[in-house]
Computed example of a mutant assay.
Amino acid sequence: MASPTVAQWEALEHILYYLKGSPGRGLLYTDYGHTKIECFCDADHAGSKATRRSTTGYCVFVGGNLISWRSKKQGIVSKSSAEAEYRAMSQSVQEIVWVLQLMKEIGITTVLPAKLWCDNKAALHIASNSVFHERTKHIEIDCHFIRDKIKENVVSTGHVRSDDQLADLLTKALNGTRVEYLCNKLGMTNIYAPT
């Protein structure tokens, strides 16, 4: 903020334009008759031009309703897109475990396993393959708790097409049409929209 650039000013204008155009936008919660937990996770490999760190994004649904989401730059530089996605999966599983514990504490039973959707087949393979390969040694051991949660039937993984990846909204710069599509998929409604 001490010395903003033109690019930062343009980014601010985009944010303000979005906010001005959507004063009535919010989440509408609906009873879909189930308490299944689903999570969409994504990462942009080396998306930061300054640090080359990736950004993790995830959104968690309970009973078909969006209840938790996050977008955060990863703490270290990932050497591959699979590593960046696997780290995003790790953060997502931590959030799923937290949501499961919260649901248990407030007395709501959930259907297990929770579904973790990812669009990177290599990261899904690393998570489901119990054989430790030489090529995966650079991923920290603490990230491999995903495998434990799969074995414990807390989480199951699944592939989602990149076009259907809801977490793209949290990790990538998108155009207005794509943003509108993803906002609708996340359950966002505009109370001022004509009916």
Score class of each variant (00 low, 15 high):
G63D: 13
G187A: 07
S156T: 07
E83K: 00
E95M: 05
S48T: 00
S162N: 05
L102W: 03
V111H: 14
N190Q: 03
D44M: 09
A193P: 10
S71T: 01
S48N: 08
L112Y: 09
Y18Q: 09
A88D: 04
S48I: 06
T177N: 14
S48A: 05
D119S: 00
M1K: 15
R25M: 15
D164I: 09
T157E: 10
S156N: 11
C118D: 08
T189W: 15
M188A: 12
S3P: 14
N129L: 08
H144Y: 06
R52E: 01
L166S: 10
N184G: 14
E140H: 13
E85F: 08
I191F: 13
V6T: 15
G176H: 08
V77F: 05
S48W: 10
D31K: 00
S3E: 15
H14L: 11
T5F: 15
L66S: 04
W98I: 12
R178M: 11
G47V: 03
R135F: 06
L66E: 12
I96C: 02
G64E: 10
K149A: 05
G57V: 04
E10Q: 14
S90D: 01
E85G: 05
H14G: 13
I191W: 06
R52N: 02
R25I: 03
S68Q: 02
E105Y: 08
L182H: 02
K115M: 04
T195V: 10
K151P: 09
R25S: 15
K49C: 07
N184W: 12
W98Q: 10
W69R: 01
I141F: 14
M103R: 07
F145T: 02
N175M: 08
S22W: 04
S81M: 05
A173W: 08
E152L: 11
Q165G: 00
R161M: 14
E13C: 13
K72M: 03
S130A: 14
R25A: 13
S78D: 09
G47K: 02
Y17R: 12
D31Q: 06
W9R: 06
E85R: 03
T5P: 10
A167Y: 04
L28Q: 05
G57A: 11
N175A: 01
S68W: 02
K115H: 10
H14Y: 14
S80Q: 05
A88M: 01
G57D: 02
S80K: 04
V131S: 06
T136P: 03
C41S: 05
P194Q: 14
L124C: 03
N65H: 00
A50V: 01
E105F: 11
T177H: 14
A50T: 00
D142G: 00
T171A: 10
A127Y: 01
D31T: 12
G176N: 15
E85Q: 06
L100D: 01
G47L: 03
Y32F: 04
V155G: 02
A2H: 13
N129W: 06
V6F: 13
F40G: 06
K79H: 14
I150E: 00
T109D: 03
D148V: 03
L166N: 02
